[in-house]
Design a protein around this nucleic acid. Sequence first.
DNA 1: GCCAACGTTGGC
DNA 2: GCCAACGTTGGC
Length: 152
Amino acid sequence: MNYWLMKSEPEEFSIDTLKKIPNQTEPWDGIRNYQARNFIRDEMKPGDLAFFYHSNCEQPGIVGIMKIASKPRPDHTAFDLQDKHYDPKSDPDNPRWFLVDVKFKRKFKRVISLSELREQIRLQDFKLLQKGNRLSVMPVTKKEWEYILSLE
DNA sequence: GCCAACGTTGGC
DNA sequence: GCCAACGTTGGC
């Protein structure tokens, strides 16, 4: 089983929104970065767990946990002219972009903020904290996962 | 293939 | 709103 971290701007889609959806499951669409796409398409499996990270907001940080709830499949929003993530270069017969469903698991009692994560000597190698990192989907090691959980 | 210009991400 | 650090695009 793999562990992940997935970013979303809470004004676009927050963990509270995911929690409120009737079956608490939603396609994680709109990923338009090849490295992130490769993680989704080639490595994500149903049952994997992911941190939900709120970015570009008042308090950036990890806010809870979700579960990967489907196999990877083509991101249909790339084919939708009306969609903000429309990409004419993604051919339905040879899709460029992929997504998985995510299912709400739990929300942390508090935000484990980016600044707090940066203070952790044991997270020095954590991908999220590397200079210039802009990946919106990234792997988390088991050690990192467990250590971050211990901070809650 | 190089690289300048441009667009995006995301912290602050 | 600013801007650093990318990633992408397209002319050559």
